[in-house]
């Protein structure tokens, strides 16, 4: 089925079977392999992408259903090759990962949180990432990364606070 997808601001036309998930389409047809298949039944969150501004499971969505939606994947987050977003950099700063498999989904979930909430509490961070299972870290350094990014983003918006 001919399907037009808008991914990271760019249009792509793919020919997919209706049964193909958005996840498989991104990975196989568009070679955007940052979204990962962990469970393929909507529990682990490794396949998280942002659809129309909200993190969703790309394994629980058909590619044909995504036509007309704006999809953002982890590949669309870094500002330029070799450059990291504030959030991505914060994940590096706190080592908010180990094996890196859940990391793209985790970052996209946190990315959406920080867009709506510049001053999240620990509970709000936990809730925002609670649909993303990390088996390595116990979440501590992930929560720390999101909090750190929030601080830094607030700082950027209010330069007088970080002039020191």
């Amino acid at each position: 089925m001919r399907t037009e997808l808008k991914i990271n601001g760019k249009s792509h036309v793919v020919d997919v079977e209706p049964r193909k998930s958005l996840l498989d389409c991104l990975r196989e047809d568009l070679r955007l392999v940052g979204a990962h298949a962990g469970c393929e039944h909507g529990v682990c969150g490794a396949c998280t992408v942002i659809v129309d501004g909200t993190p969703v499971r790309s394994c629980l969505m058909l590619a044909v259903q995504a036509e007309g939606s704006e999809v953002v994947t982890i590949e669309g987050i870094a500002p330029a090759p070799g450059e990291l977003s504030i959030l991505q950099d914060a994940f590096c700063e706190t080592h908010g990962m180990q094996c890196g498999f859940c990391t793209p989904g985790m970052i996209l979930a946190a990315h959406a949180l920080l867009r709506d909430n510049q001053e999240p509490t620990r509970e709000e961070i936990v809730e925002a990432i609670s649909g993303n299972i990390c088996r390595c870290t116990g979440y501590d350094q992930i929560i720390e990364a999101v909090a750190l990014a929030a601080r830094r983003m607030r700082g950027r918006n209010a330069p007088d606070q970080v002039s020191a």
């Binding site: 940052g34 982890i74 498999f101 990391t103 793209p104």
Partner: peptide, 11 residues
């Protein structure tokens, strides 16, 4: 970590 935060691990 740098490669993982941008989805560029080699799984």
């Amino acid at each position: 970590d740098r490669r993982f935060v941008v989805g560029k691990g080699n799984f």
